[in-house]
Design a protein around this nucleic acid. Sequence first.
DNA 1: GCCAACGTTGGC
DNA 2: GCCAACGTTGGC
Length: 147
Amino acid sequence: MKSEPDTYSIDDLARDVRTHWDGIRNYQARNMIRDHMRPGEQAFFYHSSCEVPAVVGIMKVASDAYPDPSQFDRKSKYYDPKSTKEQPRWFAVDVEFQSRLSRPVTLTEIREKKSLGDFRLIKRGNRLSVFPVSAKHWNIVQKLAGG
DNA sequence: GCCAACGTTGGC
DNA sequence: GCCAACGTTGGC
């Protein structure tokens, strides 16, 4: 799961421990959290759009998907006038801090690692903020971090 | 349904 | 700030 550290970083999550992962406004990403994420599953925390884009930590999915409250909040930048309580368009999940990687695994490193060649993160045109990670890729990234 | 215009993501 | 690679919107 990607987040811009200027907006919400692994430090913020370590402090909050648990948070609402909201503001997802892409249908594919929404489908991912609504239809495929389950409580107890693990996820990587990835810092995007920053000086050193990198996988920085591990978190745990802490809830089922639920309608993202910000879509109904007129004052939120995530407000969606086309969304109704009866038929919400957007969903959020709760996540819990689990750990930091012993060191960040940078995007550069990931690109250089042959065995991560088919990792979705570096697939051309990938802009999804939420996407599944195979067990193989999960393990390789962890190993790179030294754990 | 097509497609141009526009908006967003995210690396660089 | 630039730009590629998308996704979305809306006119037709």
